[in-house]
Design a protein around this nucleic acid. Structure first.
Length: 369
DNA sequence: TCTGCTAACATATACACAGG
DNA sequence: CCTGTGTATATGTTAGCAGA
């Protein structure tokens, strides 16, 4: 009955509660007004009334904004830049300039309607996957939410539009055979060490690139994950284009972690250390680019005849092997640097279980025949 | 007041094409 | 063989709702 964004809720006592924005404090936070009725529809009706009642008062604050969506979006971006990581900012910027501004950027901010957004979705569906469209809409939603907070808009039209459901496909793990082939091959390949490292530690590609010798403790045989490398487009629109290698803290605070290394990896690392002068484990002057690791990975993979895997699959493979060997989920989660085991379970373990289920089905079939 | 769950928010990796 | 650019999509964390 009640939909998200409506601010109508069923209460424990059986009544329906509706909220409307009565006022805003100086810092922009909302002060709600409340109404109660016996039925959902009664609340909905009265809510429209209350909203229109308070509309003028609080709109007079900022109703003089006359910019279009694009102008607002650019302003919002410049604010958001301070608050998020560079990779996030560039991703937001790309979505706005690439998909949102060309379609609806010229519409007056205050005129943007749910219908406009629905049209945008239809337009995007022709070229993008649903999960990408979701991300784009999310950015738009957040952007317009800020306009609401600042009192320019009364409500956020994005909330009236239902998001397309995601259709993401899962990354698969390597099978045991594939993995052992890859291990053997990588051991004898000059560019194979990052692959071995990923298989044995579950590190992300950016974390491998960021490794410095000072992060490895050869006495305790542990490795300290404390930075990541990415290449990001750092230019602003209309500026001269330039991408840059960016060194940052890992994906999240939880990603800062200490991981034990096996003896075979230790030996390989020590051997490499003798040969290089760089402070980075991989890469000659600065850190190696993630893409270069991918490049070699793809090459090796195709020589071995392994298909539909990407470098990140090694992380999945690591998790799967740990699970098969009886490592607890909590430990796996910690090694991967996850904040909670939920993600570990959803992203990495479920695929394993479904593979297992398939295997059992096969066995079952064999027995019956 | 607690808690499990999902959607929203945030940040990473993947992949394609061009060129030195 | 490696680097630049451009863009799509997967992974990871947190906020907040609904149910108890």
């Amino acid at each position: 009955m009640s939909k998200p964004g409506e601010n109508i809720y069923k209460r424990k006592d059986g009544r329906w509660e509706g909220r409307y924005i009565k006022n805003r404090k100086d810092d922009g936070t909302i002060q709600y007004g409340y109404i109660y009725q016996r039925t959902y529809n009664a609340v909905k009706e009265q809510l429209i009334l209350m909203k229109s009642l308070y509309y003028h008062e609080y709109h007079s604050l900022n109703s003089n904004y006359t910019g279009n969506l694009q102008q607002w979006g650019i302003f919002w971006l410049s604010n958001v830049k301070e608050k998020v990581k560079l990779s996030t900012y560039t991703s937001y910027r790309n979505k706005l300039y690439q998909h949102i501004f060309p379609e609806i950027g010229q519409i007056q901010l205050k005129q943007v309607s749910a219908q406009h957004i629905e049209n945008l979705i239809i337009c995007l569906e022709a070229k993008l996957s649903r999960s990408s469209i979701r991300v784009i809409l999310q950015v738009l939603k957040t952007c317009m939410k800020e306009a609401v907070k600042q009192g320019i808009l009364f409500d956020n039209p994005c909330l009236k539009v239902s998001m397309p459901m995601p259709n993401s496909k899962k990354v698969r793990s390597l099978t045991i055979d594939e993995e052992s082939n890859l291990q053997k091959y990588s051991r004898n390949h000059p560019k194979g060490l990052p692959i071995l490292l990923a298989l044995q530690t579950g590190l992300r590609i950016g974390e491998i690139c960021g490794l410095k010798w000072e992060d490895i403790d050869f006495y305790a045989n542990v490795l300290n994950v404390s930075r990541t490398i990415q290449r990001l487009p750092t230019f602003e629109p209309n500026e001269k284009k330039r991408t840059k290698i960016v060194e940052q803290l890992p994906k999240s605070n939880n990603s800062m972690r200490i991981i034990p290394i096996s003896n075979s990896i230790r030996v390989e690392l020590l051997r490499l250390k003798e040969l290089t002068e760089s402070q980075y484990v991989f890469g000659t002057k600065g850190p190696i680019e993630p893409r270069l690791i991918t490049y070699w990975f793809k090459k090796i993979i195709s020589e071995l005849g392994i298909y539909d895997v990407c470098f990140h699959s090694l992380r999945h493979t690591f998790a799967t092997r740990c699970l098969e060997k009886g490592v607890t989920i909590a430990t796996i989660s910690e090694l991967l640097g996850h904040h909670s085991i939920k993600l570990t379970l959803d992203t990495y373990i479920n695929t394993f279980l479904s593979e297992k289920r398939e295997a059992i089905k096969l066995i079952d079939y064999d027995l019956r025949n």
